[in-house]
Design a protein around this nucleic acid. Structure first.
Length: 630
DNA sequence: TTTGCACGGGTTTTT
DNA sequence: CCCGTGCAAA
């Protein structure tokens, strides 16, 4: 105990006056405007430490972040400071947790499934057919965005057909006992509004709330936090309007700008000293972000050293660009720098391909952060769908996905008859066994094979480990035979399945008595940066969006071309361009020591070779900070 | 009724 | 370049 107080005291003494003011905040609302690299994570941790030191029980403190990585980091830092565990969770995991406890008030059951983007899209496709017939011409993308916007408190499309689809979607999701990502926040807000006792319970449970990256909260998250903070108003939020990069997902910096109105008497704290980057990098970044007209004035300063100039590289093609980066990294690595001190940022996921090829050729180990994650791979989702159906027999989308997979001669017509029979007899689609209509011999065979597998899995779930359940889902269904038929040459999918078994084993080892439902939930809520492991000697590659909250000695920001970064879709308005500029700013400010910016004159887009021009953002960096590199 | 093949259309960013 | 969809054979 004495020792931890000592550590806390020491950390506190190291803070600058403004940081101390933040760390000492106890009750009531506070807004910390924290510029890039201004030490906000540290400040938040020390502040939690101080609260605990002053007698607040650790379980009364709730931290909210956007990624699991940020959550774990904060948890660990607090633990190091005061040796206690506080609840730090992502918005979405907290929503899931609350729903697991209280969703019955809203007419769902506790073992609900969580649908990802892919599941939602499949369901919408099916529902639009059901509503409007085969050749329905509903724009599914628009429908999807209407649904999301409606749940995030934004006005959406008002077309009749889309509204109908939205209504049906909500009805079916409830019937299937499934929720989507937006529901993980939307439904808790609904719960808080409709069940005052539930709200009161959670308000008492967490009287102290902290929110990280507040500039990226959307309307529903805003409501969620506002309701939870309740009358005590012990709400401490941290954010930076210049790093707001999720407006396309409904995030609004209004939440930051209106904070003082929403929470009267809020304490305002500005953290403007940057401890991360060299002056060159910081000044260049400041110059860029100042081009935004819609902006709250703020200027970051640093007492650090000047540092090296920013290196600009012009490549002939994307191939040459990748080769340049790989070569540089190889060289710097030989000079003794760790691969974990570098990073490659790009605007869109498809750009990672060329880099992968180049890194494989040069035998540089790497990790792609984000993109299609492990759990989104087809074979993994197939097997997980078996588990989902066993866990929740009402999970219609899981049923649809696997009933004829591997191929069992159970086609579209057959499946819709099963669905009809299930709903007429009020039996969950994953439980219906004997069918009240005639089957062809082939269907009879296929159906009994499918039911046999499902029944077997239920048995194994009751008696065996999670890893054995995963094994059984793969073997009882002859899934391996099926992939061998599909593509004889590639072993990648087999390896992924083996990896899934390993993950299930590891999970059982670290979660004693853990249930299948928990495993599935964790998988649904993994965030892309979770794969980052600083102990592994690997280079990371990721989109600029994924870079938020991270820092590296040397940053390679690539593909700086007009129509790519800024992206062509953002040319519709100046606001969108300004968001691209903020994204560029986020990328720049991740760098501690060195920054390499590159672009290609020719690039393959949709497989076609296109001439490219360098990004306007490059020109926005003043000359004195740049240097052409070859 | 299911399955296999050819075609055309579409790519931001993500919990 | 990858996917889902639309059309013709089994």
């Amino acid at each position: 105990m004495q020792e931890t107080i000592h550590i806390l005291q020491k950390e506190f003494d190291n803070l600058n006056p403004e940081q101390k003011r933040a760390a000492l905040h106890t009750t009531g609302p506070a807004l910390v405007l924290a510029g890039a690299g201004s030490g906000k994570t540290k400040v938040v941790a020390v502040r939690i430490g101080c609260l605990i030191h002053q007698g607040v029980a650790s379980h009364q403190i709730l931290g909210l972040t956007f990624t699991n990585k940020a959550a774990n980091e904060m948890k660990e830092r607090v633990h190091k400071l005061v040796g206690e565990n506080v609840v730090v969770s992502t918005f979405h995991s907290l929503g899931a947790k609350i729903l697991r406890e209280a969703i019955h008030y809203l007419g769902y059951a506790k073992d609900f499934s969580i649908y990802d983007e892919d599941d939602v899209e499949k369901l919408l496709r099916a529902l639009s057919k059901e509503l409007f017939g085969q050749d329905a011409k509903v724009d599914l993308k628009r429908a999807r965005s209407l649904i999301s916007q409606a749940k995030n408190g934004l006005p959406g499309d008002s077309e009749e057909d889309l509204k109908k689809l939205y209504e049906l979607y909500r009805k079916k999701m409830k019937e299937f006992n499934a929720v989507d990502f937006d529901d993980l926040l939307f439904l808790p807000v609904e719960l808080f509004r409709e069940v005052p006792d539930a709200l009161a319970y959670y308000q008492t449970r967490w009287p102290y709330i902290l929110v990280d990256e507040y500039q990226d909260t959307n309307q529903t998250q805003y409501e969620f936090v506002r309701l939870l903070a309740g009358s005590s108003q012990n709400l401490f939020v941290v954010g930076d309007p210049d790093q707001s990069i999720y407006s396309w997902r409904g995030a609004s910096i209004r939440n930051i700008l209106n904070f003082e109105n929403d929470y009267p008497g809020a304490k305002l704290i500005y953290l403007e000293q940057n401890y991360r980057s060299t002056c060159t990098i910081l000044n260049a970044s400041n110059a860029v972000i100042e081009k935004n007209s819609n902006r709250y004035e703020k200027s970051l300063w640093s007492s650090g050293e000047e540092g090296e100039k920013i290196q600009i590289f012009q490549a002939m093609s994307e191939r040459e660009e990748a080769a340049f980066v790989a070569r540089k990294i190889e060289k710097l690595k030989r000079e003794g720098q760790s691969l974990t001190s570098f990073v490659v940022f790009y605007r869109t996921n498809f750009q990672s391909r060329v880099f992968e090829d180049e890194l494989v050729a040069k035998q540089i180990p790497y990790t792609i952060v984000g993109g299609t994650s492990f759990y989104q791979r087809r074979e993994i989702k197939d097997i997980l769908s078996y588990l989902r159906l066993v866990q929740s027999p009402t999970d219609h989308v899981a049923f649809l996905r696997i009933v004829n997979l591997p191929k069992r001669g159970l086609g579209e017509q057959f499946i819709s008859k099963v669905a009809q029979a299930a709903s007429e007899n009020q039996i969950p689609i994953g439980s219906i066994d004997t069918l009240p209509f005639p089957l062809t011999p082939r269907q009879k065979e296929g159906w009994s094979c499918f039911r046999g597998a499902i029944n077997k899995l239920h048995e194994i779930k009751a008696t065996n480990s999670l890893a054995n359940l995963v094994r059984a889902a793969i073997h009882e269904t002859n899934y391996l035979v099926f992939i061998d038929q599909e593509e004889e040459t590639k072993s990648e999918r087999r390896e992924n399945l083996a990896e899934l078994i390993v993950k299930a084993e590891e999970w059982s080892d670290t979660h004693e008595g853990g249930q299948l439902s928990q495993f599935l939930e964790e998988i649904a809520l993994v965030t892309s940066t979770d794969v980052l492991n600083p102990n592994e000697e690997r280079l990371s590659l990721m989109t600029a969006h994924n870079s938020k909250g991270l820092e590296f000695d040397t940053v390679f920001l690539v593909g700086l071309e007009e129509d790519l970064f800024p992206h062509i879709n953002s040319k519709k308005s100046e606001e969108l361009i300004e968001e691209e500029r903020r994204l560029f700013y986020v990328g720049l400010t991740r760098a501690k020591k060195q920054l390499y910016l590159s672009f290609a004159s020719l690039r393959h887009i949709y497989g076609r070779l296109m001439p490219m021009r360098q990004s306007r953002f490059l020109q926005e960096i003043p000359h004195e900070y740049k240097k052409v590199c070859r």
